Simulated assay, not measured.
Amino acid sequence: MRGQTCGLCGKADGEVRQEYSTPNERVSRNATSFAHSWVLPAKSCHDTSECYMQLDSVKLEKQISLEGEESKCYTVEPVLRCLPGCLPVRTTSVTVGYHCVPLDSNLNRSDGLSSIYEKSIDVSETAESHLACRCTPQCT
């Protein structure tokens, strides 16, 4: 099976520069975002696994100016976030890549998330990743 595996243990091919390959075959910038990329998310916050999280693209809170144009940016690496109706009880910061588009662009993170993961990285910034979530009574 040498070189024919993937996941948290890499490809088992002896090469170490690509060890942080995510499920979408990007190389993560750090161990935390790499490990988070392999978490299997829950389908709903009523999931019996009590893992009330999903992998999601996150919008950068601050605006970035790229080539003189104000831009909005979305992560090209999935970030662990609580499902709707659940609240984070423990978080951490991870450094991830963002793809940026002009402010007036109609691209939103909900528009084809799989396509945002294929985009180029324009900037690297931190994002808040949720490590543990608590379900609220209004959970959907």
Rank of each mutant, 00 (worst) to 15 (best):
K62V: 13
T91A: 08
P41R: 01
R90K: 15
L55C: 09
E25F: 12
T140K: 02
L107N: 08
E15A: 15
V39I: 14
F34V: 12
A35S: 14
E19I: 14
S105Y: 09
E69Q: 03
H36W: 14
I121Y: 02
D111F: 08
E69D: 01
D111T: 08
S115F: 05
S129P: 06
E25I: 08
T22D: 06
N24L: 10
Y117K: 09
S93N: 11
L83V: 00
V16R: 15
E15G: 13
Y20F: 12
L113S: 07
G112A: 11
P137H: 02
H99W: 07
K59T: 07
C135L: 02
E69L: 03
R17W: 12
A132N: 06
V58I: 13
R109V: 08
T140W: 01
Y98D: 07
A12F: 11
R81F: 00
C82P: 00
L80V: 01
K119V: 01
A132E: 15
I116L: 14
G68W: 02
N24H: 15
K59V: 09
S37W: 14
Q54N: 04
G68D: 01
D47I: 04
H46E: 02
I64S: 04
G85Q: 01
M1L: 12
C100P: 06
K59L: 12
N106C: 06
G68N: 02
P137I: 00
S93D: 10
D122F: 05
D104I: 08
C133D: 03
V123P: 02
V94C: 04
V94M: 10
G3H: 06
C82W: 00
H36N: 15
S44E: 02
K11T: 14
E25P: 00
A127N: 01
N24G: 13
W38V: 12
K119G: 03
E19N: 13
S57L: 05
N108H: 12
A42Q: 03
I116M: 03
C100A: 10
T126F: 10
S120I: 05
R109F: 06
W38C: 12
E61K: 12
A127S: 08
T126N: 10
T126A: 10
T140H: 02
R17E: 13
C133S: 04
D47T: 04
E70V: 07
T48I: 11
C86V: 00
S21P: 00
S105W: 06
D56C: 00
V94Y: 05
L83E: 00
P84R: 00
Q63V: 11
E77H: 05
P88V: 11
Y52K: 00
Y74K: 01
T75N: 00
